[in-house]
Amino acid sequence: MSLRNKVTLIGHTGKEVEVFTFENGSKKAKVSLATKDFYINAAGEKVEETQWHNLVAYGKTVEIMEKYVPKGKEIAVEGKVTYRSYDHKDGTKHFLTEIRVEELLLLGSK
């Protein structure tokens, strides 16, 4: 993987993994990942901020995610940021930012 487009995230999944099977038999997995960060606001209070990321995976990673990654599981992923767009049925254009998972590490005790 190129260092020009590399992301590493550690967080908890926000839902069950969705698996899609294509006509040629290949599979795609999708799941959301919550990462948390903290900062101190102007009043000196610690504030927690949650960011949500859309993860997609292909190949053997799909099988691992399908079998071992339930909702709420803590995982670490390494991959790359991808952007895509599509036209909705109502004619509006939608834009998606996704993390294409290339490495997956199962964390926590769940």
Rank of each mutant, 00 (worst) to 15 (best):
E16L: 04
K93H: 10
R100S: 14
E78L: 10
L55G: 12
A42V: 12
S109F: 13
L9Y: 03
S85R: 11
Y39W: 09
E18C: 13
A57S: 09
V69N: 04
G25Y: 05
P70V: 08
K27H: 08
V77G: 03
S109H: 14
T50P: 00
K36N: 15
A57N: 06
I99S: 03
T8H: 02
V31D: 01
S26E: 08
K80D: 01
V69E: 01
E98H: 00
A57T: 03
M65I: 08
H88Y: 10
E48M: 13
F20R: 15
H94M: 10
E49Q: 11
V56Q: 11
E23T: 12
A29F: 08
R84L: 05
I10W: 04
K60S: 11
R4T: 03
V7E: 02
K80N: 07
L3R: 09
G44H: 02
Y68L: 12
S85D: 12
H88M: 12
V101Y: 10
S26R: 14
G72W: 09
V19E: 04
T21C: 05
L33G: 06
V31E: 01
T21M: 06
I10D: 03
A42L: 13
L104W: 08
A34C: 06
V47R: 14
K27V: 10
T8G: 04
T21L: 06
S2E: 02
K6T: 13
T21Y: 04
A43R: 11
G72T: 05
I75W: 02
L105V: 15
G108L: 02
T82Q: 15
E16D: 14
G25A: 09
G79S: 03
A43K: 15
Y83I: 02
L107Y: 05
L106P: 13
V19S: 12
D90M: 04
S26T: 14
N5E: 05
F22N: 10
N24D: 13
E16T: 01
I99Y: 01
R84P: 00
G11S: 04
K93W: 07
F38P: 00
L55S: 10
